[in-house]
């Protein structure tokens, strides 16, 4: 049973390399070193071991990305993706909570609806992309629909879980006190399931991002996903990697924001 590491171990010797690695500085240095090594190897290999055609090179990718930023050609695509995400997310949340509450308050209707919903849920949402494009056109609308339906299911199931999670004893106690059905809904069920709904909403952001980009990859005329697919279609690996890099940066930013949000929410809950 080892005790926690301290800066000097029991015999007073200076920290071993392992311990140094655990400090924030040590970790950062090693990670940056690893990243630099990978990039350097990539740069060296490109053109020599691997054809520039397939693998491009960090320098070319960086240059392309920089030119996009400088001449402003990136923003219409990026904003397009973000709009699709935002609008679809909003619609999906509202619909999800609405239907969830409805099915939660009418348990019999809920039980009947469950298999239908489950069947729909088993369909990979991406399969709906061509249908939406045909019905709604190649513009943003079809992507918004795709995002909306992806988010809808997440929020729906979160809401249902939340309502189910509300302690039945609590509901019964309120009923005995004389609360009407409406009062029970307002004062117990809705506040009770909120926690689950918020958790679902956080998870759904990631799905919204994936759905938006995926929809663009399948069929679009704008957006970051569109860029990935368009450059791939032209066999332009530099363009593809540059667009993927934008995706990576967005993903990381999104993850970071979500992680912080998750952490602060956990704190408020009392670290449950």
């Amino acid at each position: 049973m080892s005790s926690a590491a301290t800066s000097l171990d029991a015999t007073g010797a200076p920290p071993s390399p392992r311990a140094w690695l655990r400090t924030p500085w040590g970790l950062a240095v090693v990670r940056i070193a690893i990243l630099a090594a990978i990039l350097a190897a990539w740069e060296a290999a490109s053109g020599r071991i691997v054809s520039k055609y397939w693998a491009s090179s960090p320098s070319a990718i960086a240059a392309r990305l920089w030119s996009w930023i400088r001449d402003g050609s990136l923003w219409p695509h990026l904003s397009s993706t973000l709009i699709e995400m935002g609008a679809g997310y909003a619609i999906g949340c509202v619909a999800g909570v609405g239907v969830g509450l409805l099915l939660g308050f009418l348990p019999r209707a809920g039980r009947i609806a469950m298999p239908f919903l489950a069947g729909l849920y088993c369909l990979p949402k991406v399969a709906l992309a061509p249908l939406f494009v045909i019905l709604l056109g190649i513009d943003l609308a079809s992507k918004i629909a795709l995002v909306a339906i992806s988010v809808f299911f997440i929020i729906l199931y979160s809401t249902l879980d939340g309502i189910r999670d509300v302690d039945r004893d609590l509901v019964q106690a309120m009923r005995l006190m004389g609360a009407t059905r409406r009062e029970v809904s307002l004062r117990v069920l809705i506040p009770g399931c909120l926690r689950w709904v918020f958790t679902g909403m956080r998870i759904a952001i990631r799905y919204a991002f994936t759905a938006a980009v995926l929809g663009e990859v399948i069929a679009a005329n704008r957006g970051v996903g569109y860029l990935v697919e368009a450059y791939a279609g032209q066999y332009n690996s530099t363009g593809v990697f540059a667009a993927v890099l934008v995706l990576v940066v967005c993903s990381l930013g999104l993850s970071e924001v979500l992680t912080r949000w998750e952490a602060s929410a956990a704190e408020k809950r009392g670290g449950m």
Partner: peptide, 12 residues
């Protein structure tokens, strides 16, 4: 954190 499916064109 990168949605893997969006890399499909690259893989193709």
């Amino acid at each position: 954190s990168v949605p893997i499916v969006t890399l499909a064109p690259l893989l193709i």
